[in-house]
Amino acid sequence: MAILEKRRLWLAALIAAAILFPLFVANGYYVHMMTISFIWMIAVYGLNLFAGYTGYLSLAHAGFFAIGAYALGILTVKAGWPFWLAFAAACLLTTLIGVFVGLVALRTKEHFFAIYTLCVGYIIYLIIDKWDSLTGGVRGFIGIPAPADIGPLSFQTPAAQYYLVLFFLLVVVWIMHRLVYSLTGRTYIAIRNSEELALTLGISTMKNKLASFVLSVFFTSLAGALYASFIRFLGPDIAYVSVMFDFLTYLLVGGIGTLAGPVVGTLLVTFLSQQLQFLQDYRMLIFGPVLTLLIIFYPHGIAGGIIRLKAKRGEARRLQLEARQASAELAAASRQERSERYAKEG
């Protein structure tokens, strides 16, 4: 219980820090960077739900991110829909596409799934790139409006947009938290652990994988729509493999299959990227090997590493305690034996 309390305190402090951040950091650039990081985090949570908790590597998620973003752009600019209606529709549409992709893709296993989703991602990229009349092709898509006011709430200032994105991030984290510690979350983890075992335990793996995949696509499309309304300019590049790679890097550095991983990883890597900005296009010279080395030598990431360390310590403490107890019992027994012997002899 004490651990839970402590955790809650930490969480409250973190949220408070996030809320106070724009008030204390006057530099608009940092607020901008933070907002972008939050958007990435939402997408990475999407990836984490499916890759981290359900065990399938989807390489189409950058594509879903782009569909969410472009759908918002097209619905607001070309179709002239009200912002929030377009926002909801963009997420819904992407999720629907996710259902269809999932229905086919999830029948395939492991490698086939990764290859299949890689190809789906590439198809999405090609379509965005080639369908000039709809997406603007390589020239890009401009003029996406900022989020519309909701009653008295206006999202015109960077700080207001920061809070809007933070709000969505917190909702996503909250959902993930509830999910992971539920029967449904445990079901996903069981599938990740061994699909055969899960099947023989009476779990419909297809149904559960599909639900997890669709929710994960929904998170990613949400991030995409937020990205479109925040950056307000889109190019086909956001559907590209390198975006997928960024998501993966954030997730792996932070810790795949952990709740804190996406936040930790995204913050750390975007911060490091800032420091390494002089590398620009060549940052992959560093991040490529970093990711590869990480997966070989430290596949659990930062959050995963800490969790393991804690578990190990807890286990060690328990063993120590048990050993102490056992030796105390042994001592007591031998004392008793001795006194009995004395009693007999005496």
């Binding site: 490698h111 990764a114 493999v241 993966l248 940052r283 992959m284 490529g288 090997p289 990711l291 997966i295």
Partner: peptide, 23 residues
């Protein structure tokens, strides 16, 4: 390692070599 790992590692190599070529 789990099958997820070598795929991710391969993607890491891919992006490294591309950046290398560009460099």
């Amino acid at each position: 390692a789990p099958p997820l790992h070598d795929k991710i590692a391969a993607i890491g190599i891919l992006l490294f070599l591309e950046a290398f070529a560009q460099f």
